[in-house]
């Protein structure tokens, strides 16, 4: 754990003045602690989506969660997908909307549609 990137992450994660809820800082901290981490990012929205493109959530292998990609309606499903991505290293592009097959269980109640990209935080860019 001596490469410059890791050192930078530690310092950044230790900095106090950044907003505490930045998922990237949590991701950096968890990574520095040796935990596998996935990032989920809203890449597109249609209709009355709850969070804009760029909204982000960090998920650790141990189930720690920071940030959000919706007002809460699809987070559970995104966390499951993130754990899968941590397991198999494969990025995932998820889509949620009222017309989705899974609408009854994890759809957006607001009537919008969102795309969420899930990637691993890792040395090979998650691929």
């Amino acid at each position: 754990m001596t490469d410059p990137a890791t050192t930078d992450l530690r310092q950044a994660a230790a900095s106090q003045d950044a907003p505490l809820d930045d998922p990237l800082l949590h991701a950096a901290r968890w990574h520095a602690q040796g935990e596998a981490v996935a990032l989920a990012t809203v890449t597109a929205t249609w209709g009355s989506a709850p969070r804009p493109a760029g909204s982000r959530m960090a998920i650790s292998a141990g189930g720690r969660i920071a940030g959000s990609v919706s007002s809460g309606c699809v987070e559970g499903d995104v966390v499951e997908a993130a754990i899968e991505t941590i397991r198999d290293g494969q990025p995932r592009l998820l889509s949620y909307g009222v017309s989705d097959d899974s609408a009854w269980s994890v759809g957006l109640t607001c009537g919008g549609t969102i795309s969420v990209f899930v990637e691993q935080l890792g040395g090979d860019g998650g691929r």
Partner: peptide
């Protein structure tokens, strides 16, 4: 995302 990109994103924010 690589740890290098994450570190640079955090650094850019701090700067």
């Amino acid at each position: 995302m690589t740890p290098d990109i994450l570190a640079r994103l955090i650094e850019a924010k701090e700067r």
